[in-house]
Design a protein around this nucleic acid. Structure first.
Lengths: 251, 251
DNA sequence: CGCCGCGTTGAAGAAAATCAAAGCACGTGG
DNA sequence: CCACGTGCTTTGATTTTCTTCAACGCGGCG
């Protein structure tokens, strides 16, 4: 059996000591399987666990009083879910499975062990939180100041980029299991308009929407339409991190 | 002279030991004054410092290729600015002063000292990052799924809530120094439309827009218009935090 | 087969953007 | 103290973008 889900994620940032790995491993409890459309938690639920996504896709959402909803984030394998709610007792968004999936819970309480026992892991957790924020920021820009076409293109490119990062092995990250209705709720548009926007992108040969999914045909073209600037995804995996590693090993 | 800016902020979460205070104090360098409209950093600048806002208001923004911009966040006294970019070498948003202001830089490098020397402070930093994210999430909802009127009302209520938290002493947090143009860029609207929306709110007696600022007349009314649910601002200042404190003191 | 979820289409309407011009408050310099 | 410029607000007319509503198609699945 391979490295646990979270170890693989962390090793993207830095090599880990055996001790670190042991610590992380002890966090991760038995994986839990969820089926498509199964709800993992709802708004208001308790926040005693985080999850790492081992397989499949998930999404976080918020239901509005008027019956609409806002999809807040999409999670792909390797992502950590729930860190957002670290400071809160109750979840501020729901989480449900977009496809059949496998997720690994780990208890929030144990974060204290991590913080106290490994400077390096603590630092990496902080980097992950920072990255999450920067993704949200970009999503803000997307919702606030881009046309429907650019919104859609940008969102698709981002997802594809995020897949590349953790799924290097999977050659085809060009198949995206998002329905048009879900994209609408993620982008603050109506499903009808998403559909029409897709038709434009399709005519330009950029995407190929199929039943319940999208195929990305021309990433570069999409980037151009979106005005995509990847810098918000490009973390500094050297710099401070190296010093944290050095210091951590020294103790 | 009173406690440093950041100590006051942290004591909102938990009482600190003298050692913690000393550590925090050592982080905070000499305050820097900036005048209205002065730029503190631009997109792409280096991320070697965070800042705490001691006086005045600041805003973070992103300029788009087409000449528009998105205002990403507003900062009020007590806020910490720049944590977002912890994982990055370069800033992904600009920061400029909305009013004359006083900010206290502290070096990002020293975060390692904090993490290694104080479990409690580390934990609080994490809570702050979590809170920042939850504010961004709510802003996403605001941009994605609310009408112009609700957007505006919600944003104003949020600001007022955030002011209450750190500025308990200031009785009148009902005077907000935001121009309509800036609000437009924050809410993804045009300045013209913001103006018209203000007129509606004004007729209902909820706000009183004056030159270069807004007076909030009826917070409850605004909350109703916004469908404001404050839970995204209500952190759990007990729970894990208490355990962190206990453990921290034990060592 | 028939249902159900999702995608597609058309027509009509609402929300917000854009353009352009004018007004108003404030500071600055004469 | 007044004239002037500048930045922000206000207003009206027009246009664009996106939504809403309603209907239909289509594929998968029990």
């Amino acid at each position: 059996m391979g490295a646990s889900c979270i170890i693989r994620h962390f090793e993207f940032y830095s090599p880990l000591t055996d001790q670190d790995k042991k610590l992380l491993d002890s966090l991760e409890k038995a994986p839990r399987c969820v089926v498509k459309n199964e709800s993992v938690w709802q708004e208001g639920a308790s926040t005693d666990h985080f999850y790492t996504v081992r397989k499949g896709w998930m999404y976080a959402y918020r239901n509005m009083e008027d019956g609409t909803r806002q999809v807040l984030d999409i999670f792909v394998p390797g992502d950590i879910v729930g860190l957002r709610e670290f400071a809160f007792r109750k979840r501020i968004s729901g989480l449900t499975a977009l496809t059949d999936a496998e997720i690994c819970p780990f208890p929030k309480k144990r974060m204290l062990d991590v913080f106290s026992q490994s400077l390096l892991l603590c630092h990496i957790f902080f980097m992950i939180a920072s990255r999450d924020q920067s993704i949200l920021l970009e999503r803000l820009v997307n919702l606030g100041r881009r046309s429907a076409k650019a919104k859609l293109a940008h969102f698709l490119v981002e997802i594809s980029r995020r897949l590349e990062k953790t799924n290097v092995d999977i050659g085809n990250h060009y198949r995206i299991p998002l329905s048009q209705g879900l994209l609408a709720d993620a982008l603050g548009l109506s499903a009808v308009h998403v559909n029409r926007t897709f038709q434009e992108l399709k005519e330009e040969g950029l995407v190929n929407p199929r039943h319940g999914g999208i195929e990305l045909l021309d990433l570069e073209g999409l980037k151009a339409v979106a005005g995509f600037d990847p810098s918000y995804l490009e973390e500094d995996v050297h710099g401070l991190l190296a010093e944290a590693r050095a210091r951590h090993i020294a103790t």
